[in-house]
Design a protein around this nucleic acid. Structure first.
Lengths: 116, 116
DNA sequence: CCCATATATGAATATGTGTTCATATACAGA
DNA sequence: TCTGTATATGAACACATATTCATATATGGG
């Protein structure tokens, strides 16, 4: 880290101003955690299916072509991120989306991806 | 993977219908890659600063409290993801956002994060 | 040309992560 | 209560990834 050029291009006041408006580290960390959840094809697939229909674990595994254990592990992550909710009926656990913003996120991301 | 319960809760037609509407694996992979880029606090911080102002590498490093090399590595990832663009002036390279959807993504994510 | 400086890059390392396997737990039915 | 089934969980492994260090590349000034 050769810090020869320490912000000589913008003024000290400007630096402080921009820095002050930076969201708290904790907020940034939570944002990163949030996005990280979407950064995996398996979870994305699960979320897509759940956006169509409430589904049980076994059905999700069959649809996504994943093992039951793998799906269960990923669902735990989605649960802890408060992106999905569960409904239990006997031994079957039904999962569904618990965030109305997911579709919106998909749309914005698709816009970017589809721009070549 | 004990597949005893293979989609007995939804009909075969429904399965096919839902499966058919699933975006191509390649699209899902690209979506995941896109989100993964946002899933890191350092990159998020860099993107935040760039959303305020065009900045050179050294200034970004100073603002984000990162080493020059680390910033450069992350900027390469952001460049390859087509999220930032560069402008060269002498030996100084200025970075700025190259995607008008980033702010929108931030907003949606913040909404989720701030909901407790 | 040579030097100083801004940025980029490659190797190495430490840490994180997704899947699998084996197993535990929970619940319904006989 | 015993059995079968749906889901959850923990350990282990393979793989990805962010940072650091050292160094390369590029550009402008003298």
């Amino acid at each position: 880290m050769t810090d020869t050029c320490l912000c000589k291009l913008i003024s000290t006041e400007e630096i402080e101003e921009i820095k002050a408006a930076l969201p708290q580290q904790s907020v940034i960390a939570r944002l990163a955690e949030f996005f990280k959840v979407f950064g995996d094809p398996s979870r994305l697939t699960i979320l897509y299916y759940l956006s169509k229909k409430e589904l049980c674990v076994a059905d999700l595994a069959a649809l996504a072509g994943m093992g039951q254990s793998a799906v269960s592990h990923q669902l735990k992550i989605l649960r802890l991120s408060r992106l999905v909710k569960t409904r239990k009926e006997g031994t079957v656990v039904y999962y569904s989306l618990d965030d109305e913003h997911i579709q919106e996120l998909f749309d914005v991301a698709l816009q970017h991806v589809e721009e070549e």
